[in-house]
Design a protein around this nucleic acid. Structure first.
Lengths: 194, 194
DNA sequence: TAGATAAACGAACATTTGTTAGTTAATTCC
DNA sequence: GGAATTAACTAACAAATGTTCGTTTATCTA
């Protein structure tokens, strides 16, 4: 038997769902829309998934798990806090470029998760933010960073990389590497000349 | 006749709509939900508004008009480019704090505008971004700013202030003024110590 | 090859959606 | 005070929603 289906039908549904959710939003995407994109009838999809909101949950938690595990690895490295922050910024950019639609859904449509999934996701996000903030705080304590409000710095960084999804298209005049370098310059060194 | 209704019923509908759209999204908010919040039946609202998407358009264009007119004023002032950028950052923060729900809707739900409104809004946004980018470019040319990619700087700044909506609550331990000062520090001077 | 499982289908379901129609009560105008 | 306008209501609409049902077709297993 030839190995033609490298990707499961379920994964195909999740991938197409991420694209549609990103473009039209969760509520704006009907199961019939999605089925049309996948190439089957809406009813047939229920052989592979349990419900519409299970699709959403699958996408969101895959991304949040990824972020949290990566944060753990980066925190544990033996480098300066500046380097850790840079690594995190690079992680965000890389994930956005490589897994754009899913990241976008995890950023915007998570609020349509039904309880108790909603609470779990919020907690996961908080865990990530806490870990990120701890690095900034330690960097300030070590004298590496300016004594700026930690929450403000955290969200400024998080949102700066989040915007990429709405703007960056692979194959723009800017490579992913240049994108990283420029964002890091602005965030870590500032726009104004010293 | 006593002057009790300082605010029109239409404006009340628009205000409540902005809050609901922000929380549940445009598609996630039904006209019956909105009517319940306003305090009348769904059908009654059609005495004050033409259609659901007209509500969305009203909110979005009020905000975009505001931004564009303010950008014009700030551009025309006789100050350094650093000061102009700071003024714009302050404008974003102030609008977000004072008119949060509407700004949030203009940031997220504009994509559900039907044509031709959608095209008009996109153009308005592009106009604003062009004007903002021109200031950054001029600042670089004048030697005030680092020679960073203009688009990256633009979107890093725009998204940094956009994040406030999801995080800042008036009456937090941080005042609006401190918020401004901290964000400007991070964006213009950078996180790292010089 | 026979039987079992997986995966597709069309049809129908109960709700919910935005909106309109027709009507009635309140307010304003002359 | 009568007429006209405004703004509210109930009822209903057609369309779209997520999902289930029973059935058929394809695929794998023994």
């Amino acid at each position: 038997m030839v190995e033609t289906k490298k990707i499961s039908k379920r994964q195909l549904i999740l991938d197409e769902a991420a694209k549609l959710f990103k473009d039209r939003g969760y509520g704006g995407t009907s199961m019939r829309d999605l089925a049309g994109q996948v190439g089957m009838e809406a009813a047939s999809m229920y052989n592979h998934i349990k419900a519409k909101d299970e699709i959403l949950a699958s996408i969101c938690f895959r991304i949040s798990d990824l972020y949290i595990s990566q944060l753990g690895e980066i925190s544990a490295t033996n480098t300066s806090y500046g380097d850790k922050i840079k690594a995190l910024i690079r992680l965000h950019i890389r994930l956005m470029v490589e897994d754009g639609p899913a990241v976008s859904v995890a950023n915007h449509d998570w609020k349509y998760l039904p309880e108790p999934k909603l609470g779990e996701f919020k907690q996961a996000r908080k865990t990530y933010e806490k870990g990120f903030a701890a690095l900034i705080e330690a960097g300030i304590a070590a004298g590496e960073f300016q004594p700026v409000n930690v929450s403000v710095a955290l969200f400024t960084i998080l949102s700066a990389v989040r915007w990429i999804e709405l703007w960056y298209r692979p194959g723009r005049d800017l490579s992913a590497e240049e994108l990283e370098a420029n964002i890091i310059t602005v965030l870590l060194h500032g726009l104004e000349r010293k």
